[in-house]
């Protein structure tokens, strides 16, 4: 028996390079978008939820909460825009979880691609989905009489801020996605966290009328700052800099804590 070993056929080095990574992320993003197309119900949370919330709150509670529906529209819609980034961030974990469960991740891991590509493509696809839901929400809100009192720059800034905050939540979402057994469990836990975060914030109602213990929560809830910042940006009323700062600090802090944990866990599993 001979011990001669097959000589390597290609002497290329093992680095993938920027153009390679971009190509891989592009191909995987396309895949993620096609998955959404094949399973349109998965658009439900990102696109329909904000619309349903708008209708429900504006017409059911709007008159009672703000005196009239027009005032309440101007109050609610910016807050909902901010929160969209959070919803899409949670979808990253669900998607990651199902890739690990189905063996698709194993297939990717036997291919000569960087492990970050899978993750970056998830974020890219969710960002695109987020942009679509921003457009739908703003378009729908304008149809029912919402007005952007400032300009397109402020709209972009609002969306940008929501995305920045969403990106920090992606790390938490990733951790959940890798720690829990099923995509349903990830969704369940995400709901459990999101619900009190959303309602215990200034998104739906001003916090002044809430009891003291709740106010101490809503005051530190970053979603309140996000909603306040969005309202200030789109309605042109109130201080912009302060809530924006708070959102940015929160985003940085969440990223600093959870990104290393999520990346470590991801590296261990891939």
């Amino acid at each position: 028996m001979t011990t001669a070993t097959l000589a390597p056929a290609r002497a290329e080095d093992s680095r993938i390079g920027l153009s390679g990574t971009l190509r891989h992320v592009g191909a995987l993003t396309r895949r993620n978008l096609m998955r959404i197309k094949a399973d349109p119900e998965s658009m439900f949370d990102a696109v329909l939820m904000p619309v349903i919330f708008t209708v429900l709150f504006v017409y059911v509670f709007g008159g009672a909460m703000a005196g009239d529906q027009d005032t309440y529209k101007q109050y609610l819609v910016p807050g909902l825009l901010g929160q969209t980034g959070l919803t899409l961030a949670m979808a990253v974990g669900t998607g990651l979880n199902s890739d690990f469960q189905t063996g698709v991740m194993d297939r990717f891991r036997t291919l000569p691609i960087g492990r970050a590509s899978v993750l970056l493509s998830k974020i890219a696809a969710e960002t695109l989905r987020g942009l679509l839901s921003f457009a739908i929400l703003i378009g729908f809100a304008m149809c029912i009489g919402f007005e952007v009192k400032t300009g397109p720059l402020e709209v972009l800034a609002t969306i940008g801020l929501a995305l920045v905050f969403g990106m920090s939540i992606v790390w938490i979402s990733m951790l959940l996605g890798m720690a829990l057994r099923s995509a349903q469990a990830v969704q369940g836990v995400a709901m459990l966290v999101l619900m009190p975060m959303q309602f215990g914030s200034s998104i739906f109602a001003p916090t002044q009328t809430m009891p003291g213990w709740l106010q101490s929560f809503t005051k530190v809830n970053p979603l309140s700052a996000l909603a306040d910042a969005s309202r200030a940006l789109l309605n042109g009323q109130g201080a912009v800099a302060h809530p924006v700062m708070i959102v940015l600090i929160w985003s940085a802090a969440v990223t600093a804590v959870f990104a290393p944990l999520a990346v470590a866990r991801f590296r261990k599993r891939t």
Binding site: R23, R31, A38, V104, L111
Partner: peptide, 18 residues
């Protein structure tokens, strides 16, 4: 380890690109 939500063609095309 195929992606159930993608068509047969898209599954193979994706891997070709990767």
């Amino acid at each position: 380890s195929v992606d159930e939500l993608l068509s047969g063609y898209e599954n193979l095309y994706l891997i070709g690109r990767l």
